[in-house]
């Protein structure tokens, strides 16, 4: 079975672009290795975006960079089902980050001050900056993966037609 192109597997598809793609892959890896935000929280943001994009391939993708924490399966399921904000399983800081992510995805221009301030209250200015950087990369990779999947599907269909003809 072929593994679909997602934000997690994207670097393989982009490597043909050369040094810029390699550089983007290094940035992607470095984002997950920072300590301004707790382990696993960016992965919950990725799943939040996957849900908002209604992208089943993205939701099903397993991210080796996600970071380990014992409650990750439970939290991931709650995020995928859009139940995070009502759940006691998440800390206030985690809820603040997930709320910022939802505003970021919906309209980057309209993030209320209080939403950003809540993130800063828990994780400081560097935490908010890392979050902003990571959200942009996660969303960009999901978008790129969708475009490349659509192009691959179109190419396959054209090849099938050519084969029949």
């Amino acid at each position: 079975m072929t593994i679909p192109i997602t934000s997690v597997t994207l670097d393989q598809s982009l490597s043909r672009a050369g040094p810029a793609a390699a550089s983007f892959a290094r940035l992607w890896t470095s984002l997950w290795a920072q300590d301004q935000l707790p382990q696993g929280l960016l992965e919950l943001c990725r799943l939040t975006f996957a849900r908002l994009h209604r992208d089943q391939d993205e939701l099903a993708a397993s991210n080796p960079l996600a970071g380990e924490r014992p409650d990750m399966d439970v939290l991931s399921r709650l995020v995928a089902e859009d139940k995070a904000h009502d759940s006691p399983a998440f800390t206030d800081g985690e809820k603040a980050v997930l709320l910022f992510a939802e505003y970021y995805w919906t309209d980057t221009q309209s993030i209320p001050d209080e939403v950003a301030d809540r993130v800063k209250a828990h994780f400081g200015d560097p935490g908010l900056v890392l979050l902003i950087e990571a959200l942009g990369c996660i969303d960009g990779r999901i978008r790129t993966a969708r475009c490349l999947r659509d192009m691959a599907a179109s190419r396959s269909k054209m090849e099938e037609v050519a084969h029949v003809e």
């Binding site: 598809s13 982009l14 490597s15 043909r16 672009a17 050369g18 810029a20 793609a21 983007f24 950087e133 942009g136 990369c137 969303d139 960009g140 990779r141 978008r143 790129t144 475009c147 490349l148």
Partner: peptide, 12 residues
């Protein structure tokens, strides 16, 4: 692929 990398960079 090259344009996608550029787009992601400009976008984020």
């Amino acid at each position: 692929a090259s344009m996608m990398v550029a787009l992601m960079t400009y976008n984020f």
